[in-house]
Write a protein that binds this DNA or RNA. Structure first.
Lengths: 250, 250
DNA sequence: GAGTGGTCTAGACCACAAT
DNA sequence: TTGTGGTCTAGACCACTCG
């Protein structure tokens, strides 16, 4: 490990997961740990900051840090990639492209992907399975500049995110997710093997590169009972917000 | 403003919101801004870190920081408090307690609130309105040590979070939220004015104090179309996770 | 009052990006 | 090659908590 603060964060994470610092317990002080690891206070604070952002520990001025939770949230890599997430949970991911179609972008799509209206986009309808059980129906729109790479992927490609990285070095590193509930339509019901009108968890997301260039936008519908989204947050920083939808929404 | 890094973060946020740094644009370098504000590079990096955690800017080693989004997510204060969130959006919040009942904690409730099984808890069923329209049905369980304070609140209390802070200095500063979709039951349908079986967005949450002491756990159901949850995240840090529910789940 | 975390400084070296 | 952000150090002072 070249980065000392990451190494220290890893050690602390393990100690918390192992129960050496149980939930509710106080952690050693910054100076103690800095001395123990032979690093400056700044480096140690960086490690603590990581765990704080993960929601594992809390802090108040004047008092020692306290353990809030034992297990970290999964990484964004796992969040973005259905396949990686599935494997992390010991399930076998699967998938199949149902339809694939190129078309000029509508005004809404162009706006979301920061394209000119009429630029070509690629629509993909894809079903995702967990242990051969359908759990997620994705309606994805890819910006034209990624379309060729996406079309070259095999229909039953396990991990689109990973394959695009391997094939063209594309890294999707930022995302915005909108969560709400909808009733299953005809297609949803058929592919997810539920009754029409069943409640589905809908996640509309847009993913961008690190530079902020939009790559894809998607309407994902999860079968009830199969998946739960978890957000852990604290006063200091949290990216979760509750919004009333705007009229112009997708 | 006593804290310099907060002041700088505020200024940058405003500049981004005003479009002085539009989405996609590069920001000035750390050294330029540090010199301009007369602070050290460390302080400036702290300000940048705040904006990064809010999802407003992205960074890669070697290149200037880039604007990813113009508007920050709402604060956790607004997320926790229905009333504050509603007012921030210019809507009139309302609410009414439908039922209130004390009971010994079940094993599940005791585990969630870190109580001994059989300790007393307070169950509240509360309807929340936005501009007099019902949007949210809350089934909340409060730990016994907060029950007296909660019961003293008026039935149509606008902001429970604020009132508890005012009354007993209780600050709810950490939370865990689980989001999924469920079909409306009889009570849900009646109170939210939807048909039975309609899709509802369900948020199960547990809130704790800064020290990690659980205060309440709640099953909140939102009427479709009225509210959307938004998560913005990046590779560096994100508290959003996708989970398969465990059998033992609430 | 002693200890702790929050803030801030003024340096340094490195890895990486852009040109 | 130059500039940028990422990492790290060794100090300092303050606000706060706790016994």
């Amino acid at each position: 490990m070249t980065r000392r603060h990451e190494h220290i964060a890893d050690e602390l994470r393990r100690a918390i997961a192992d129960g050496r610092y149980p939930v509710g317990a106080a952690l050693p002080s910054e100076s103690e740990l800095a001395a123990a690891h032979g690093v400056s206070r700044g480096t140690l604070r960086q490690a603590f900051g990581t765990l704080q952002a993960e929601g594992l520990i809390g802090s108040r001025q004047g008092a020692r840090r306290v353990v809030l939770a034992a297990t970290p949230s999964q990484s964004f890599t796992e969040l973005r990639s259905f396949a990686q997430w599935a494997r992390a949970g010991g399930r076998a991911p699967g998938g199949r492209v149902l339809t694939s179609r190129r078309a000029p972008a509508t005004d809404a799509e162009a706006a979301q992907l920061q394209l000119a209206p009429g630029d070509e986009v690629l629509h993909i309808l894809r079903i995702r399975t967990l242990d051969a059980e359908p759990v997620l129906l994705e309606r994805t729109v890819y910006a034209g500049w990624t379309a060729d790479a996406v079309e070259r992927l095999p229909d039953d490609c396990e991990s689109v995110t990973q394959s695009l990285y391997d094939a063209v070095g594309l890294v999707m590193s930022n995302g915005e997710h909108h969560l709400d509930a909808v009733a299953a339509g005809t297609t949803d019901a058929r592919e997810l093997a539920v009754r029409r009108g069943s409640p589905l968890l809908r996640v509309r997301r847009t993913t961008t590169t690190a530079e902020g260039r939009p790559v894809e936008t998607s309407d994902d519908r999860y079968r009830p009972g199969s998946v739960v989204f978890t957000v852990r947050n604290s006063v200091q920083a949290n990216p979760l917000a509750r919004n009333t939808p705007t009229r112009a929404a997708l």
